[in-house]
Design a protein around this nucleic acid. Sequence first.
DNA 1: GTAAAATATGAAATTAATTTTCATATTTTC
DNA 2: GAAAATATGAAAATTAATTTCATATTTTAC
Lengths: 282, 282
Amino acid sequence: MNILEKIANELETFSKSERKVAEVILSSPGTVIHASIAALAKQANISEPTVNRFCRRLDTKGYPDFKLHLAQSLANGTPYVNRHVDENDSADEYTSKIFESTMANLELARKSLDTSTINRSVDLLTQANKISFFGLGASAVVAHDAQNKFFRFNVPVVYFDDILMQRMSAINSRQGDVVVVISHTGRTKALVDVASLARENDATVIGITTAGTPLAKECNFVLSVDVAEDTDLYMPMASRIAQLTLIDCLATGFTLRRGTKFRDNLKKVKDSLRSSRFERKD
Amino acid sequence: MNILEKIANELETFSKSERKVAEVILSSPGTVIHASIAALAKQANISEPTVNRFCRRLDTKGYPDFKLHLAQSLANGTPYVNRHVDENDSADEYTSKIFESTMANLELARKSLDTSTINRSVDLLTQANKISFFGLGASAVVAHDAQNKFFRFNVPVVYFDDILMQRMSAINSRQGDVVVVISHTGRTKALVDVASLARENDATVIGITTAGTPLAKECNFVLSVDVAEDTDLYMPMASRIAQLTLIDCLATGFTLRRGTKFRDNLKKVKDSLRSSRFERKD
DNA sequence: GTAAAATATGAAATTAATTTTCATATTTTC
DNA sequence: GAAAATATGAAAATTAATTTCATATTTTAC
């Protein structure tokens, strides 16, 4: 594992002084790799041996070895950790933190995804008579996006963010229909009902939700996407980005399954939009 | 440039002894990063000062600094890159590629973002009498998401994905209103018109679009988000993810600007959703 | 071809950095 | 509240890296 993530993860297990070092390192890892143990100790207001012990605790041979690991973490393309936005952050700071957290969470989500379920879901979607995407709140946005993508495939696709429409649609579903229900928490009662109704009417229900939730239990298939909780500002952030990226995977799988001719058709859809645009000069 | 490549390139310009060091390093760089200057000198059959001079010649501060660069070169094997999906990719492969491309593009987007414009936009949004988000197609999804977020702030916010509603709304806008127009291409005629109408009616127009496009020219402020073109499957993918993350930044900036009390209020909004949910057992 | 100049190299000395040891302070447990 | 466990830092010891300077090698000029 990336040593930066490791530091972020184990932050609570550190002692008071070690945490001081950890915070200095997390706040500017790029500076630390060029600092001596004395400089780092001074910056963290602790002694040099403490820095050394900190390094060893992280399973490195000592300070120079630690710097090597740190340098590798930074080069890895993933110095991304879920850093929390702070009261007094400048636009620069919170922007960086948000982008980095999003990337860190995408990495997490990727690791947690079960690609065989993705594959199975793509199977079902390509064979569906009708595809419905249901979500509420932030997940309605994901459903909206999914409709936008699948609409291009020239398959019957609907999306509702209205709970009554969703219920009516679920009740009218039948064998061969695929209903995709999206909810990060998986605990929205109304949506769990919709999933249940759809299943009673023999539709295949795919949940994009967290594993083990009430919604997950109502679904035939569950695409679970793990992200760190979005607690910062009481708004769903990383979760919906991960869900959207999953939608991209489903849509991509769909087009690949349908073969080359089908993709020519996609190009036509895109070209048809051209007349609504200003020409590019380059 | 990668220091390993640099060594390989400059091999001819080195002196006899330096070349010996270079060859040892090139043949097993992974060992070298854990070796002392003495060990490396011995392995190359030359003296320690020669190793040191070799390091300096490569524009590093000395041997330890050189090792740092070397470690980074080695780690560099897996940066997130925009890998394209291939005809015969398995679910596992295209999932990885899509997630990695998305992360690579977020990194790109972050670098291209001008945080002072974000800051200015947050200013305008916090002072707006009314906020409107307009987009079409994939950008409608982004506008939808923005509404969802800003709605929680208890400010007058609207979102339209219907071009006629957008026009009407733009015509009815006035000084003090902020209109956010979202379009990756920045070339959708209808939206450029909307931006123009809003501006004629004294609204402040913020564009989330690519710099230099017709839409960008109609806006008072442009938040430009660079991503690699989504050419794979003729669908917007990375661009909308980057735009959504930008929305997160704006929303975060908004809440920070509004202060602590305001965030308590956000928590209440979130708590109010609780009764619509199944309780968590843990 | 050879002497002078320039360059390259390494041994030893110096300097700098890291690690260990050990005494003291702080926290936890009973 | 005392004893044990743990954490911390000052100073010493060790280790590693760098500089200095003498010597060797190569290049240049005639």
